[in-house]
Structure formats: structure tokens, C-alpha cells
Design a protein around this nucleic acid. Structure first.
Lengths: 210, 210
DNA sequence: CGCTAAATGGAGGATGCCGTCCACTTAGGT
DNA sequence: ACCTAAGTGGACGGCATCCTCCATTTAGCG
């Protein structure tokens, strides 16, 4: 169902309109926005929407594939920074800012996508890259040694929680939370901590199954 | 509609059953649980539920009134502690643990209750008490001077976000997050921070109105 | 131009929740 | 024991969303 496939020109055009509409709708109203609303915004019928994206999930993964790629490139930037600690901080700040700017993006990180292969691969790459950033920052003696990769997940989830409310307050809250946490991640502030939760970026998903 | 009022014995009994059922349902399934499910669990018809609690909101405020009171008493305990920093930490840890233990409690903190007078009053009292704890902890030189009352709101919201997933992982995540944040609240770790968001415990409510 | 398969849009059945209405039941005073 | 008003349960109409089906339109090739 890729746009490059031999689709009729009008179909390809409508597909693009749907993706634009979905991106905007998800960003402002969250992932729960009715499919009909997306279709209306795109100026197509619901049937067209369902033909291109059989499930809401497929639409979401397509829409947020780009943003996920942006996350991955943030990690790459961090790897390119000669100062690993600065790279570490910058990466976290950027990703959290992205989360704040797009409500759907936040939601997308909290929802499970069992069959988004491409998604998984990109995320795995980002995770590996980040692990390397962490390793270097620890080696440089700037990041506390007991920082766990799961702490990134923890921070992202916490940031999701903090980033509710008005756009302005959400931004301010996120910035301050991140600043606090980055301070406590510094090596010189290290003090005993409770064990990290058994979370990976993968476990960011699959919420609320108590 | 208080239970003490002259209600028939069976009505009072059913009211109690409804409250129990609602407490349990909210705790496990969140505030969105269907009213019918609560009624079924309580062994009554929906009409009975609606008669006692005309709106979902009134039911919620009644159910979480107790838990809110528990929060207030946590603050009182903190005030009673001769070591203000220890009191501060203990209060935060306790409230966060309560949030983790009860999914509905978390949701309740994120929902607006325009007409819950009693609620508001208790919360205002808790907020005043906590402000005093903060003042003392700062005076003792243990809490950083730029800690803002809004930071409590920030922490609670962040904790909400972190406390998703399995009960176990949620508990572990919350504990670690709180430990990290308490470390960065310490006076000796103080470094410049972005300004606090304009949040009070009151603004904890009214979410997601972008 | 004309044809055909691809593409479309909107109607409509299914589902799930809300909140009300009403005919029946029962507590509890006399 | 009886009477009455308080109490009750479940059926019901309303609404929103999901997703499918199908009659109609249209792109694009020969």
C-alpha cells in the first residue's frame, strides 16, 4: 500500500491528503480522534480512508513513522557530538520537546503496535544508538554509573504525564522536569537508588494491563 | 444524599455497596469504567446508581474523598516530623505510592471537578500544609531554594505518567522516578533551572484543553 | 472517443454507553 | 396485618463510533 506502488494518480493524491489530515488531527486531538473526522478533514469518504488504512493502527504507524525517524536522527546527532554528556542531554531535551509539541506523538509512544515491523526496526536502531551515547557519557565520568537504559523509558513516560494541559504550561512543565532529571543523572549527584523498572523502549508500549 | 440522612435501611445498604463497587472498579479500570459495570458489581440496577449519584462526577468525588483525606493526613504527618526534609521526602513518597496503587486515584487527580466544594477545601488545606513543609525544609537548608510549589504538581503528573503498565513495573518505575527527583530537589544539587510552570495543585486538573 | 477496472462516498447495520421512565416491590410506621 | 411512600431494576430511546457494502464516478489506456 506504499504510495510508490502503481496507484492511480487520484488515489495517490488522496492518500497524501489523508496522511496530512491524520497528522494534524492526531497532533491536536490525540489518537482517539474518530476516523470519520480524519476523513472529513481530508475531504474524502470514510470508505477511502479504510481502503488505504484498514486499521487505525496502520494509519498511526504510517503517520508517526516520520516522527520516529526524527527521533532516530536525534540520537545520531548525539552520537556525533564530541562531548558525550552534552549529546546525551541534548538528545533527551529534543525528544521530550517533540513529545510536548505533538499530543498524538505522546500517545503513540504509549500504545502498542504489535505488527509495525519498520517501526520496531527504527526503534531498535535508536535504542542501540542511545545505549552507545550512554556508554560514552558514563566513560567520560559525567553520567552516573547506575543510570539504566530503562531510565530513558522512565523519563519519557514521566514526560508524557507532565506534558498535559495548555501548550504553554506543558512546555514549561516538560522543560523543568527534564532539567531536574538531567541534574540527578549527573555522576557527581549519584546516591543509592531503588532498582530500575524492567522496562525497555519496547515496554514503553502495552500500557494499563493490570 | 448523605448516608446519615433519613434513608431507608435498604437504601443506605445499597449506597454502601455502590461505593465499594465503584472504589474497586475505579481502582482497577480507571474512571472511564461504564456506570452499568459499577451497578452490576454492586448488585443493583443502573437506576439505583443514578438516583444516589446523579452524575459520574458526584460518585467519583464521594469515592475519592477518603483518599484525598488520606493525602491530607500524609501532609500532617510530614508537619509532625521534627526533620522537615525527612518529612518532605516521606510525604512525597507516600502520595506517589498511593497514586500507583490506585489507577482511579491517578485519573481523579487529572480530572476537573468544578463543584466538589469539600474536595477543594481539603485540597487547599493539604496545599497549605505542604507549603509549610517546604518552607521548613528550605529553612533547614536541605531543600533547594528555587523549589517551587508547582514542582509538586509537576512531580505528581510525572508520576502519573511513569505509573503505567503492570502493577509491579509501575511501582518500580514510580519509586525510581521519585528517588531521582528527590535527589535533584536537594539543596546541594541546586543548579539553574528553567522557570517553573504556572501550576498549582488546582491546575493539576483541567487537562488536555489545547 | 469509448471502455473498463480502479477508486470513491455515503448509507446503514452493529456495538456500546448514557441517562430516564415506569410498573413493580418492600420497608417500616400504625 | 395493612398501607403508603420510598426504593428498585431493567427496558428503552438517544447518541457516537466503527466498519462494510454497493451503486456511481473517473482515470488512463488503446
Amino acid at each position: 500500500m506504499e504510495p510508490a506502488e502503481a496507484m492511480r494518480a487520484d488515489a495517490r493524491h488522496n492518500r497524501a491528503r489523508i496522511l496530512d489530515a491524520a497528522r494534524e488531527a492526531f497532533a491536536t486531538r490525540g489518537l482517539d480522534v474518530p476516523m470519520a473526522a480524519i476523513a472529513r478533514r481530508a475531504g474524502v469518504g470514510v470508505a477511502t480512508l479504510y481502503r488505504r488504512f484498514p486499521s487505525r493502527e496502520s494509519l498511526i504507524t504510517e503517520v508517526f513513522g516520520d516522527e520516529l525517524a526524527a527521533c532516530a536522527s536525534v540520537v545520531d546527532e548525539a552520537l556525533a557530538d564530541p562531548d558525550p554528556w552534552r549529546g546525551f542531554c541534548a538528545a533527551i531535551e529534543k525528544v521530550c520537546a517533540m513529545q510536548v509539541a505533538d499530543r498524538g506523538f505522546t500517545d503513540a509512544f504509549l500504545t502498542a503496535f504489535p505488527d509495525a515491523i519498520d517501526y520496531e526496526r527504527t526503534r531498535a536502531r535508536a535504542e542501540r544508538g542511545f545505549a552507545e551515547v550512554v556508554r560514552r557519557a558514563k566513560a567520560a565520568g559525567r553520567l552516573r554509573a547506575d543510570f539504566d537504559l530503562a531510565d530513558l523509558t522512565l523519563l519519557l513516560k514521566a514526560n508524557c504525564g507532565a506534558a498535559t494541559g495548555t501548550a504553554q504550561t506543558a512546555a514549561a512543565a516538560s522543560r523543568r522536569l527534564v532539567a531536574y532529571l538531567l541534574q540527578s543523572f549527573r555522576a557527581e549527584h549519584a546516591e543509592p537508588l531503588p532498582p530500575p523498572p524492567p522496562l525497555t523502549l519496547g515496554h514503553l508500549h502495552a500500557p494499563a494491563a493490570r
